[in-house]
């Protein structure tokens, strides 16, 4: 079913309380790149974002493109949420992925997500609050993510939206 672009109450995501240091993830996600902080001194890849390297404490951190390859360690299907956006869309599936580059990341999963342990690829999208979120797919191209209505909606995929165009005159 095609949905309207008119926002409804349940479309509203809560005020984002993200830290300034997490902005790099969102900036990259805006152009569909999955980037994490990498230490210029010791090359440690880290997540969640920090002000300094968790290993050597260097503050010279750069956001670098990640392959996203990792192993899905566990998953859960939420039947309850305190967040009105998700409450209106239950059940909701999330999982923990151990990236090959080191960190463990919490990710959104499509409803047909594989049973752990499984190889997955993590990518970054913008959610409806405009902040970067991580999603995992069992396909490297993430094609199955586009089959999942809830994830399309969460990440404001334009294929679900009727667009009005005018000549502006």
């Amino acid at each position: 079913m095609r949905r309207s672009v008119m926002p409804t109450k349940s479309d509203a995501m809560p005020r984002s309380l993200r830290s300034p240091v997490s902005q790099g993830l969102s900036s990259a996600a805006a152009v569909r790149r999955f980037e994490l902080q990498v230490c210029s001194q010791c090359a440690t890849v880290q997540y969640p974002p920090r002000e300094a390297c968790v290993r050597c404490l260097s503050t010279r951190l750069v956001w670098q493109l990640q392959s996203g390859a990792g192993e899905l360690l566990s998953r859960t299907v939420l039947h309850h949420s305190h967040d009105p956006y998700f409450l209106a869309r239950l059940p909701w599936t999330v999982g923990l992925v151990r990236l090959d580059s080191g960190p463990t990341v919490l990710v959104h999963l499509p409803q047909n997500a594989p049973v752990p342990p499984a190889r997955v690829w993590v990518s970054a999208r913008l959610d409806r609050s405009g902040a970067g979120v991580l999603v995992a797919s069992e396909r490297k191209d993430g094609a199955d993510l586009n089959d999942d209505r809830r994830l399309r909606e969460l990440t404001s995929d334009p294929s679900d939206v009727d667009l009005f165009t005018t000549d502006g005159g």
Partner: peptide, 8 residues
């Protein structure tokens, strides 16, 4: 940054 945006 890394838990609340995932719904729980």
């Amino acid at each position: 940054d890394a838990v609340h945006p995932y719904g729980a």
